[in-house]
């Protein structure tokens, strides 16, 4: 399913998107598979599956440790695509990885493998717009969304450049920092979302540090089209206790905040 179609469907149902991130292969492919199914059952509208890299500079400790565990257990691009192909969930899937992994695999081949695995979008947190021409072109030719990030300190000039190239959705970082840091969602975010929405029709989803219902409610009330939560799920998987039950509860809780009333 295309990401745009998903957002369209949600809009008709008066909902925003819950986008759930977990790291593939942490602790193994089997667990990832059941975790994805559970998250979707709990209400995740889109699933972002991390393909782990040894040096994830945009990630906080929770996702770093998950990446280390997954790599140690042998997760790699080939196994990743195999795993994604084996998923039967109906929601759009996004591949999140760092640029060296794609570069080494070969940009063309990487996008080809994504298509084969029915992946709808790619997020590369260390690939700013200036360096993304080649991957962008390849994604466009193949109808895959390359999702760009925006931060609260992205200036207007950059913002326009990014908005002009956006597809799928815009990943708005809630505050300066890495994934998993405590987030204090404030009204600065509201004016930023309003500003972005003035320039573009592409949906805006807010991520980094989202872990509870009240944050989700606030963000959605500011006009965001979705929220992205990752570390909170990754932590639950790492703790291993009652994993499926816990994941289901958290997803359900966060999903509640995305329903407009």
């Amino acid at each position: 399913m295309k990401i745009a179609e998903k957002f369209e469907e949600l809009r008709e149902n008066k909902e925003s998107a819950l986008i759930a991130y977990i790291c593939a292969g942490d602790p193994d492919s089997h667990v990832t598979k059941s975790a994805v199914e559970t998250l979707v059952e709990g209400g995740a509208d889109i699933v972002e599956l991390g393909l782990p890299f040894s040096d994830p500079i945009a990630d906080g400790p929770t996702i770093q440790e998950a990446s280390d565990r997954a790599i140690r257990k042998g997760m790699n691009p080939d196994k990743y695509f195999e795993l994604v192909k084996s998923l039967s969930v109906k929601v759009p899937l996004i591949c999140m990885t760092y640029y060296n992994i794609i570069h080494k695999y070969g940009i063309r081949s990487f996008v080809d493998s994504c298509i084969e695995a029915r992946i709808s979008g790619i997020i590369v947190p260390d690939l700013p717009i200036e360096e993304s021409t080649e991957l962008k072109q390849c994604c466009e030719n193949n109808n895959i969304d390359l999702i760009h990030l925006i931060s609260p300190i992205t200036n207007d000039e950059r913002l326009k450049k990014i908005l002009n190239n956006s597809s799928g959705f815009l990943y708005l970082i809630s505050q300066t920092g890495v994934t998993g840091s405590d987030s204090n969602i404030d009204s600065g975010l509201e004016s930023l979302i309003k500003k972005i929405k003035k320039y573009t029709d592409t949906p805006v989803a807010v991520g980094f540090g989202i872990s509870n219902l009240s944050q989700v409610r606030n963000i959605i009330s500011y006009g965001a089209d979705g929220v992205i939560a990752g570390s909170v799920f990754v932590k639950t998987i790492a703790s291993g206790k009652n994993m499926e039950h816990e994941l289901l509860q958290i997803a359900k809780e966060l999903k509640m905040g995305t329903r407009h009333d």
């Binding site: 947190p125 700013p128 200036e130 360096e131 990030l149 970082i173 300066t176």
Partner: peptide
């Protein structure tokens, strides 16, 4: 060379 960094670092 280049700048392969998170968007946050670009400014």
């Amino acid at each position: 060379g280049g700048q392969f960094v998170p968007e946050l670092l670009m400014p």
